[in-house]
Design a protein around this nucleic acid. Structure first.
Length: 243
DNA sequence: CGCCAGGTGGGAT
DNA sequence: ATCCCACATGGC
């Protein structure tokens, strides 16, 4: 686990994703997504809630699509749970249209707004537990953990489809393990620091997009050893290897 | 035009 | 417990 981190950090450099306490500057969720000035400070209630809405809106969706929806919400003055709760479903779904699944996500935002509607819920002391998040409709393991890590700086590693793919290609997991089992690999091997988990996750995303794609580009891959490399075809078009 | 993108809940087996 | 599917837009 640590070896993978070191290798992809060296290869890609720090990603500088969602800010953590003590970081010098505030850059956006995704370097290509947010721009300085667009974004709300993540240690205020509105800032935390923006991160939370982003976590829902980006579910199985390109970040650019989710970000466009966040921008429209911001422009419409939607900043806090009470704003979401005050909107009719049709108006809300219209505002977030670009994020895809807009009917489902409007419902999810309503649910998440209800959970965070008490002012204390958007403060560090009042942060909901993982169990409380998971019990809300529309919040699964990854979204819950994204909220805990990125909105509340809890030392919780976020496992996503990229994580599963990269680790299984390398041979660190089989691929069908349960979410929490994969997460435990990170929790057990690394110091439990939010900034580390943040950076590591961002680096996995970068690696999965740059080299460890559906059709991987193993020829220039910076990660070694990798089990998949032996099976992978160096050029596109060849039949995909299966273990 | 086809595929993919930082998932989740619900229903069938 | 596991598998299958609906949910939907936008970029390449």
């Amino acid at each position: 686990m640590l070896s993978l981190y070191t290798q992809i950090l060296t290869a890609y450099g720090p990603r500088g994703w969602w800010p953590v306490p003590g970081s010098a500057g505030h850059r956006g969720f995704d370097p290509r997504g947010y721009h300085p000035g667009d974004f709300t400070h993540p240690r205020t209630p509105a800032g935390r809630f923006e991160v939370i809405m982003g976590a829902v809106l980006t579910q199985n969706t390109a970040w650019t699509n989710a970000d466009a929806a966040l921008a429209r919400l911001r422009k419409a003055g939607v900043r806090l749970p009470s704003d979401i709760l005050a909107l009719p479903h049709s108006r809300l779904s219209g505002l977030i249209r670009s994020s895809g699944y807009f009917n489902q996500k409007a419902k999810k935002l309503k649910a998440v707004a209800a959970l965070f509607s008490h002012q204390r819920a958007l403060t560090p002391a009042g942060a909901p537990s993982r169990e409380a998040l998971l019990s809300e409709w529309g919040i699964g393991a990854e979204t819950a953990d994204s909220i805990l890590l990125y909105a509340f700086y809890k030392p919780v590693f976020v496992v996503d489809a990229y994580t599963r793919r990269v680790l299984s290609r390398i041979g660190l997991i089989e691929g069908s393990e349960r979410y929490e089992d994969i997460q435990a690999l990170f929790h057990d091997a690394l110091k439990q620091q939010p900034a580390l988990y943040n950076e590591y996750h961002a680096l996995i995303v970068q690696h999965a997009r740059r080299h460890c794609t559906t059709r991987p580009e193993c020829a220039t891959c910076p990660v070694r050893p990798c089990r998949y490399r032996r099976h992978a075809s160096p050029r596109a078009g060849a039949p995909r290897a299966r273990a």
